[in-house]
Design a protein around this nucleic acid. Structure first.
Lengths: 241, 241
DNA sequence: ATTATCTATAGATCTATAGATAATGC
DNA sequence: ATTATCTATAGATCTATAGATAATGC
């Protein structure tokens, strides 16, 4: 196993399953074929098509206003199949948000694995996510479409950022306002950045992302010099998406 | 004129129309009786009932998802009357947002009339609006319900805050990130504060508002000492709502 | 034989309008 | 006489399900 490619799995799109014998965490939404029978894989494909359509519709700003018919058409599946997977639009949108954001959250976890200063983990996460407009426009579009509802999703970015803010406070690294209030300001800044980039790509470059990170660090109580230093450090390499 | 009350205008709810001979700006949504015939006033009442219902529904988080029937029931008017005033739900919600926010924006303008430092105008506006949960819970609920859509409303809070950020930058008072990005972060912070207060009134008091203002000033590039000074100044008195 | 997907449709909304009723103007 | 509001309803969705069809398991 491992090197022998399964029939039905196309070359060039394989996902790294293990590195030197150590299994990597597999996000639930990985677009590789899941284990199980061929029927299971077909069902998973349909489910993923629905989730992808939901994410695309949120990115278009038509989020919850889309009808189930529009969703299944975008997913290119039969109308009735929707109910094999989800009980309601709300459930689909919730699931889709959680999966997309959690997948990105785990990506960030891996990118920040080498860092220990909470302020640096926080800033690095923000700087990587602020670059989504360039690196992962689809995900960026989904996030701008979701807006502050992002904060209500119990997985993905918000819980991680809140964890970092709190541990930064505990470590005396931050002297922030109320953590959830600070988190909401951070989310607002990130959303603003992604939206400006979307609407007007020329007026924003990557230094604007680092300037936002620097400003947010100052907001959280980091000194001016420290904020500048942390926000201009080299960024870790991202894995393949 | 001016001192003689019109018949049909109830005592105790009069709105200050002029001060020392200088006419004050009159918000379109003032709940006093508008000029014109009695028919005009009846029409205006119906319209205001629709706007009030829309604001209430947004505050309940059911915003655009409410049906026109729900709206007219909440407004306690006949279903068909809706179309005498608005072509669509979207138009009603847009109008309602603009009127409510613009009215509040003008209130803030008057409260800040004596200030000239852009940083202080900005901080005072934020500190007053951060207290909405205590002073004007209905408006606070509307704002939390609207979320970052607030930023797309062309009147009210967002344009004023953007103006202050830009003039603060022009005056060398702020060394902020991209103005619209900064604005979005400010909005996120305000929304977070109002939401935490809504969900959990005990954990937030008015010093938390001032701490947010202080943190936001630091984000905008104001020095630590200056930020503290500005965010703890006595607040101007508000007029009656 | 089993399971998932697809098509077709009943029933429940929801919107927009027509026509009746009530209030106001003159 | 004019104008706004109200009630009732036609037509257009939209959701949820039943039953037929297609794919897979064994």
């Amino acid at each position: 196993m491992g090197r022998r490619r399964r029939s039905g799995q196309r070359a060039g799109y394989g996902v790294i399953r293990e590195v030197e014998g150590i299994p990597m965490a597999q996000p639930a939404s990985a677009n590789s074929a899941p284990a199980g029978t061929r029927l299971d894989r077909r069902k998973a494909r349909t489910r993923q098509a629905l989730i992808g359509a939901a994410i695309g519709l949120i990115a278009e700003g038509r989020g919850e206003r889309a009808s189930i018919q529009e969703i299944t058409e975008a997913a290119d599946i039969g109308f009735g199949s929707f109910y094999n997977h989800f009980d309601s639009k709300e459930q689909l949108f919730r699931t889709a948000s959680e999966e997309a954001l959690e997948r990105w959250g785990q990506m960030i976890d891996r990118a920040c694995a080498g860092l220990d200063d909470p302020a640096e983990v926080f800033a690095t996460s923000l700087r990587i996510s602020g670059r989504l407009g360039w690196t992962h426009p689809d995900l960026a579009g989904f996030i701008t479409g979701a807006g502050l509802d992002l904060l209500a999703v119990p997985r993905g970015l918000a819980p991680r950022a809140l964890r970092d803010i709190k541990s930064g406070q505990a470590a005396g690294r931050f002297a922030a306002p109320h953590p959830e209030v600070a988190l909401s300001a951070v989310a607002g800044g990130l959303l603003g950045l992604l939206r400006v980039h979307q609407d007007d790509p020329e007026v924003i470059d990557e230094t604007a992302v680092d300037q936002l990170a620097e400003a947010i660090l100052r907001m959280l109580g980091v000194s001016t010099q420290d904020a500048k230093r942390i926000a201009t450090r080299p960024l870790p390499q991202l894995e393949a998406w």
